[in-house]
Design a protein around this nucleic acid. Structure first.
Length: 472
DNA sequence: TGCATACCGCCGCTTGCCAG
DNA sequence: CTGGCAAGCGGCGGTATGCA
């Protein structure tokens, strides 16, 4: 390996070190959703810091954490969640049938890894500081989920509510009944006085019989509207209003029945399609809370905006299990540069990008970018597709689709232990019947499922790879 | 001995900028 | 747009200490 000086960027024209120095140049990154990205990726040396950058790092030392999620962090979180949820979806839906709805409504699947999105709130005015609540309430709750419900991986996000209370969004990987969640959370709340406080407030409010709260009504209505917007479901305001009123009335009756000891302090969103869930959850948890706005303003404007933004959360604003921290998107080199000579691959990743290019050209909309974002300086291109990337892959580039699918199968195996891949056979079957190109499987055992099950999955190379035998 | 608290090291979250 | 980067620092978690 040639010695490459660290922290010294090569000047251009760059004199490449002696062979075998190389770096991968153009990489196609295929995301779980509708986005495909092509960018240059260096391997072999680190870039240096400019003086301006070093100066800024110096400045950054004095900077205080502002309590908001930075754009950089929200990107990081988005990446984590996208890939985690995709790995679970991949396992749940076997062959990635387009209709994932069935998989998510089938109770049989409730025993498997299954994403559940929970919101935890305080039913009374916050009585402890943020870190106390995270350490003693949220943490306890997560530990309980792990012990009782078999939750393995989780992600949480703390946010201020409009009323100033801290509240949490929690994403876990097991199906859990809402009643169980509410029971557990309320039990923890009771130990810290929140149930007693809630009871007092409610009894005072309804001293003269049922007195619905206007604010609560509109808050609930908005939540419903927001969810249908994100999931692209039609929204009927009247019907939603009736639904909310009924729910509030019912909540009152429940409150009376339980002596206000079982507040609706938790909320679970129904999951019908994981695609919409991912988008919804990611958008929900990576909100920057108007942090960008605050940063863009000059000093005399800042005060005005400051009064309208929600208070800052003390300490950590998000957390997750270690396992999902470093999940990566699927990427494949489409062209490789060795000593700055470009070699173009004759592979499906290359063909796929060429296909996206020609599709973009076909659109030919005036004054439109045709769903393609380009940066001429760097050569980075981002394709916004009309459908999920894997749908195109499955139909037109099966070889690449298998690699993409394997990426998530592998990810799932790493997250949830070594399990027999009972789905690989189905996966292959679906590709073989649906796609134009056939795989040559003649030198593999006839009974694929046995072969696959008897193979341990310690690394990517140790398990069945149909491409190795494919004569491309 | 068992539990609670204190301490401390290290992990990981944060920042803006830049290269690609 | 995305990923990588350095380094401060909050706080997590493991370990030492204190105390009954």
């Amino acid at each position: 390996m040639p010695t490459v000086q660290k922290n010294v960027a090569p000047s251009y024209p760059y004199t490449a070190p002696a062979a075998p120095h190389k770096y991968i140049a153009h990489v196609a990154k295929i995301k779980p959703g509708k986005r495909v990205m092509v960018y240059k990726k260096f391997i072999g040396f680190k870039s240096s810091k400019s003086e301006a950058e070093l100066l800024n790092l110096e400045k950054g030392k004095n900077g205080e954490y502002n309590g908001f999620m930075s754009p950089a962090t929200s990107r990081k979180v988005r990446k984590m969640l996208e890939n985690w949820l995709k790995a679970i979806e991949c396992e749940l839906t076997d062959t990635w049938a387009i209709d994932t709805r069935k998989a998510f409504t089938d109770p049989a699947n409730h025993k498997r890894t299954y994403p559940t999105f929970v919101t935890l709130t305080l039913p009374a005015r916050q009585m402890h500081d943020d870190n106390f609540i995270k350490r003693n309430l949220l943490n306890r709750f997560i530990i309980n989920l792990k012990l009782q419900s078999g939750v393995e991986h989780y992600f949480w996000r703390a946010e201020p509510q409009k009323n100033g209370n801290i509240h949490f969004h929690l994403l876990v990987d097991r199906w859990i009944h809402w009643r169980s969640i509410r029971h557990d959370w309320n039990k923890i709340l009771a130990e810290h006085g929140y149930i007693e406080a809630y009871k007092k407030v409610q009894e005072a409010k309804h001293a003269k019989g049922y007195t619905p709260d206007r604010k609560e009504y509109f808050a609930r209505l908005n939540a419903l509207r927001e969810f249908s917007q994100h999931t692209k479901q039609p929204f009927d305001q009247k019907a939603a209003g009736v639904k909310v009123q009924a729910a509030m009335r019912k909540a009152y009756e429940e409150g009376i029945k339980t002596g206000w000891t079982d507040p609706n302090s938790t909320d679970i969103h129904a999951i019908e399609k994981v695609e919409s869930l991912t988008a919804y959850v990611v958008k929900y948890v990576t909100k920057t809370d108007g942090a960008d706005k605050v940063r863009d303003l000059n000093e005399d404007q800042t005060e005005e905006i400051t009064t309208t933004r929600v208070r800052k959360i003390d300490g950590r604003i998000w957390g997750c299990s270690d396992g999902i921290r470093n999940l990566n998107h699927f990427e494949e080199a489409i062209a490789e540069e060795v000593d700055f000579q470009t070699f173009t691959y004759d592979n499906q990743a290359f063909d796929f990008i060429r296909h996206l290019e020609s599709e973009a050209e076909k659109k030919n909309d005036k004054n439109e970018d045709n769903g393609v974002w380009r940066d001429k300086e760097s050569g980075t291109v981002i394709y916004e597709l009309d459908v999920e990337a894997h749908i195109i892959l499955k139909a037109l580039f099966p070889e690449l689709f298998v690699k993409f699918a394997q990426h998530y199968k592998q990810m799932y195996a790493e997250l949830y232990g070594q399990k027999p891949f009972t789905n690989v056979e189905q996966l292959l079957c679906s590709i073989i019947t649906e796609s134009v190109i056939m795989f040559d499987l003649s030198d593999k055992p006839a009974d694929l499922s046995n072969y696959v099950q008897s193979t341990t999955l310690t690394s990517a190379s140790s398990w069945f790879d149909p491409l190795e035998s494919a004569p491309f």
